[in-house]
Design a protein around this nucleic acid. Structure first.
Lengths: 224, 224
DNA sequence: ACGGGAGTCAACACCCTGTCGAGAAGAATC
DNA sequence: GATTCTTCTCGACAGGGTGTTGACTCCCGT
């Protein structure tokens, strides 16, 4: 769990009065609008009016447009981490199934909040805060995968090869970009129903080189 | 060759007088400034003043800031396609070496113009034109890889598996994102000297599952 | 010597951001 | 009930970026 995303004072208030509703209203408006237009096309005025307040009042709740997105991103990340759970600690049982579970859960979470994820990916280029947060989260996931790969190698299930960290970076990067294309729908993209299996296939090939070992009742080819 | 990037009328002029210099000056200024600040932090006024003209005059040469970047991107894409050449047609000789050559050449080209590539990646989120152009280029490369994978399968060098197109999308996506991280330097990234070999390793694993066959006098590791 | 196109820019209208200071609304204290 | 303090609200402003207009210059061909 231990969410990296410090879901703390992204807003500005410290009170407990009825202003909480306003903050939620802004957040809700943002997510609603994000489903329609791109983040860049949403002005602070849109957010404010959508929440029933004036533009200056908006600044009372958030320091800027980006902070709203950051708060939304915090939630998604927390949800993703919760969904991932401890799958990586249970790899030994049935690696293929566990890796698939991991990828699938991320897919579910991101898919459920695609508007937010897409907006963040687009803003990452221009906003340092989003860039920092995303970098921290990626680092967290990369380390988790790195550790899992090393564990698989240690128990003899996966062969040695690339530094585990580099491998983890490459695979995580692939997932990010492939999901982006699938959700955004621009450019060549894997069809949504197939994307988990496509990613899984590359992960297994890269980690195990010749299909995961058949520990339990798996159907992978046995290593030579 | 047949550059997808229609390097045609991205500018506005149709003349052949001394105005050509101005157009070049704008482009040069853009690439120079891009090496310093982010694209979003460069105003049209910066571009204009850098080229020794006033802001309205800028509009005589380009319809907007984005068109400048688009023109720059055209060049890089053309260069990348030229660098790639016909490597994919010569895979059979020494697959590992050829794949590495392909990836390395893209790496060289993008690395030489990282400022432009980075800026495009950041703007792709907000600018439809850049998005379209990049999507078209990706489609081109995906199809090339797809064809190469199918050829390798046909000659028995690579096993069947994922639809070649999905595999090509995943691998191309990985490269794009990994290069971005490496060049941008934010978030977890593969060190620049290693990035080609890391990518290559995943490509070979995903395409051949157990290392490419050693046809000629290649120096690739023999498959187990 | 002159008509016309290429090239140039001051000035304008517009939109968005962020801030300031004057207030309204309500709870706590006298 | 009046007073004070804090929370909350917004009209109005300043600043900076974009894109357009209309007039003006310069040069070239006739």
């Amino acid at each position: 769990m231990t969410s990296i995303a410090a879901a703390s004072a992204r807003g500005r208030r410290a009170a407990r009065t009825s202003g909480d509703d306003r903050e939620s209203a802004i957040l809700a408006t943002a997510e609603r609008l994000l489903a329609q237009r791109s983040f860049a096309d949403i002005s602070i005025d849109d957010l404010a009016r959508g929440a029933g307040i004036s533009r200056p009042t908006f600044y009372f709740y958030f320091p800027g447009k980006d902070a709203v997105l950051l708060t939304l991103l915090d939630r998604v990340i927390e949800e993703a981490n919760a969904a991932a759970g401890d799958v990586l600690d249970r790899l030994a049982g049935d690696p293929r199934a566990r890796w698939r579970e991991l990828i699938d859960r991320f897919h579910q979470t991101f898919g459920a909040h695609r508007a937010v994820v897409l907006a963040c990916a687009q803003v990452r280029g221009t906003n340092a805060e989003v860039r920092r947060l995303w970098a921290a989260v990626m680092e967290h996931w990369v380390r988790a995968i790195e550790g899992a790969v090393e564990a698989e190698r240690r128990r003899g299930a996966a062969p040695d090869g690339l530094p585990a960290r580099d491998l983890a970076i490459a695979l995580n990067s692939m997932n990010e970009r492939v999901w982006y294309a699938t959700f955004a729908g621009d450019g060549p993209a894997v069809a949504e129903p197939d994307v988990v299996d496509v990613l899984l296939d590359v992960w297994l090939a890269a980690i195990y080189k010749e299909g995961p070992p058949v520990n339990a009742s798996g159907s992978g080819r046995a290593p030579s």
